[in-house]
């Protein structure tokens, strides 16, 4: 066991068996995918609709089990663990989904955040501490007594994140967490994601927004169930052969400036870094 790795995806293929009709052709949602995620890393996964991004995400906390190949979470094989101790996996890897309305269960914000730790038998004073800490982390402590239905989409998503954080997972997988939010909501969620990463948690972010992916240490590009590229953002964005990608504004601007004699370093892929460079 390599203790440096929190997630190991080894030759994973996955087939959805949807209709039970034997004449239906089996379509592979994942086709021999392999990669590792190191502890504390921030990895973005991008790709078109139907490329297998969400399917691979659901393998990381045993919501799905590989048809062939294996997934190790902190050294535990998800296939074995899902029979003996699925909670062990989900304690390590928490998951935040696209639609916050599908993730909230209680009529009071703080009860909702407490739901996870209660389920895994955390002592009550410890639950109190974790809930408060998680709500503060997502800047929602002052709303703790409110009903989730009175909150905006971005606020609800922050509550869903707090619920995951209260489980104290080492790694959080975000599956298009900003897809249903407005720009303000998106910014709030990205700030929280970067905050979690800076605290040392492992973050995996599945997104269609390249500006969000640019903040990651590494970007994995999926297409038709296959892993196409696994490289740092600057390398991924410099490739022209990945048709599904929109290059972020900062990357195309840096390119344009280079063509005009302004020597922008190749590793600048975010607007913040580009602005700092131009104003130094």
């Amino acid at each position: 066991m390599d203790s440096d790795l929190i997630i190991q995806i080894k030759n994973v293929s996955y087939a959805y068996l949807d209709d039970g009709d034997p004449t239906t052709e089996e379509k592979l949602a994942l086709d021999n995918v392999s990669f590792d995620v190191k502890r504390g890393e921030f990895v973005a996964i991008v790709g078109s609709n139907g490329s297998g991004k969400s399917t691979i995400a659901k393998h990381m906390n045993a919501l799905l089990l590989p048809t062939s190949g294996s997934v190790l979470v902190d050294g535990m094989d998800t296939k074995e663990a899902s029979e003996t101790a699925p909670w062990e996996i989900r304690r390590k890897v928490g998951m935040v989904f696209q639609n916050p309305d599908n993730q909230l269960v209680s009529s009071v914000v703080e009860d909702d955040v407490a739901f996870g730790p209660e389920n895994i038998g955390v002592p009550s004073d410890e639950i109190r501490r974790r809930v408060d800490e998680a709500l503060r982390l997502v800047d929602m402590y002052e709303h703790r007594k409110k009903g989730p239905h009175l909150l905006s989409g971005g606020q609800k998503q922050r509550i869903a994140i707090a619920g995951v954080i209260a489980m104290d997972p080492e790694c959080v997988v975000f599956d298009e967490p900003t897809a249903m939010l407005d720009p303000k909501g998106r910014r709030e969620i990205m700030e929280i994601i970067e905050r979690l990463h800076s605290q040392g948690r492992t973050v995996i972010l599945i997104t269609h927004f390249m500006e969000e992916a640019a903040a990651a240490d590494r970007i994995i590009v999926m297409g038709n169930g296959k892993l196409l590229v696994d490289a740092p953002p600057a390398d991924v964005f410099s490739r022209d052969d990945l048709g599904v990608l929109n290059v972020p504004f900062a990357v195309s601007m840096a390119r344009k400036l280079r063509e005009n004699g302004i020597d922008v370093p190749a590793d600048i892929v975010t607007e913040k870094k580009l602005a700092e460079f131009l104003c130094r």
């Binding site: 790709g47 078109s48 609709n49 249903m180 269609h208 390249m210 048709g243 599904v244 929109n246």
Partner: peptide, 9 residues
Amino acid sequence: AGLDPKGHD
């Protein structure tokens, strides 16, 4: 909303 960059364009 919710479409990938190509679908969006």
